[in-house]
């Protein structure tokens, strides 16, 4: 073992150290040109003046952000009041994403735990079963959900058939339908990180707790949960972040009343009616939110790792 420790620990694997920059060049150039530069362009666009037929005029303006947060009346000459329309849409996005995250946690945690406690050879198969649906086209999954939730759809048929309800409940075009759709879209993202952390968890800690008279539920709450918290947080982030900006679920399942920020953004770029700077500004607000969440998360994870070591 001495050899392994000395060779593996001290030097990172550096076989291709000399060629490093050449090997990285294609990804730097490509992602720089077609991801990083576009995001910067978007930031610039959000500070430009809108052109009436879509597109922009190259004149600096904070009108897009102003429109997002403040109402200055029809002609823009009244004193500024908070504009609730877009903040409400934003707030609804957070609320919907949060609800979907909680739903996913309620189902995802027990599932992840169950899979992680299977015999080692059986686990990859379970994980595979959970991941397959993620790789199916999101659009098709959302359409399937729409089909399922219809008033005369299979879910209502099933519930009536079992005698639980007499008349179909209308789920489609409600907030709940959107929550269900988001939950369904990103459920595998909740299961996988929790699974990974429960699998790493040392179950002799639970045995020690049981030995010291703790019941299973107390052990779960006081011993296991703190240990797997980073995985749970990671799962919540992975569901919450894409849910926030999702477009398909609210568009197909929510109907016109249950607008989320994704739809608001999309509308700004459709045809000639849109407002590009406003769309770019709304995108920037969303992006900032997401980056803040990710940064808090990264700090938390770093702290958790420090505590663990």
């Amino acid at each position: 073992m001495a050899g392994g420790a000395a060779s593996g620990g001290s030097a990172a694997t550096d076989t291709y150290k000399e060629a490093r920059n050449w090997l990285l060049l294609p990804s730097w150039v490509y992602l720089g040109a077609f991801v990083l530069v576009p995001v910067i362009m978007m930031l610039i666009y959000s500070f430009l003046t809108k052109e009436f037929r879509g597109g922009v005029v190259w004149e600096f303006s904070t009108a897009a952000y102003d429109q997002f947060f403040f109402d200055r009346g029809l002609f823009g000459d009244e004193p500024a009041r908070i504009e609730w329309t877009y903040i409400t849409i934003f707030w609804r996005s957070i609320w919907q994403a949060g609800a979907a995250t909680l739903l996913a946690l309620a189902i995802g945690f027990p599932t992840a735990y169950f899979i992680a406690t299977r015999p080692e050879q059986a686990r990859p198969m379970w994980v595979f079963l959970i991941t397959i649906p993620y790789w199916v086209n999101l659009l098709i999954r959302t359409v399937s959900m729409k089909f399922m939730l219809r008033d005369s759809g299979p879910l209502n048929d099933f519930l009536i058939g079992t005698g639980l309800i007499n008349d179909p409940i209308s789920i489609i075009n409600t907030n709940f339908a959107v929550q269900l759709g988001l939950f369904y879209s990103y459920l595998p993202f909740m299961v996988l990180p929790i699974y990974a952390s429960v699998e790493r968890y040392n179950f002799s800690l639970s045995e020690a707790a049981a030995d010291l008279y703790a019941s299973k539920w107390v052990t779960l709450r006081r011993v296991l949960l703190p240990a797997v918290k980073p995985g749970v947080i990671a799962g919540c982030i992975l569901v919450f972040v894409p849910s926030m900006g999702s477009f398909l679920a609210p568009d197909l399942l929510g109907g016109a009343k249950n607008f989320m920020i994704g739809s608001l953004i999309e509308e700004q770029f459709k045809g000639n009616a849109g407002n590009w700077p406003f769309g770019a500004a709304a995108s920037m607000v969303l992006l900032s939110m997401v980056l803040i969440v990710l940064m808090i998360f990264a700090r938390q994870q770093a702290k958790a790792e420090k505590e663990a070591s």
Binding site: A2, A5, A6
Partner: peptide, 19 residues
């Protein structure tokens, strides 16, 4: 001969050309 981390593997890898 030596315990873990004594440098014996490092010396060997220097002779081999990996360090």
């Amino acid at each position: 001969l030596g315990p873990s981390g004594c440098g014996k593997t490092t010396l060997l890898r220097m002779i081999a050309g990996f360090e």
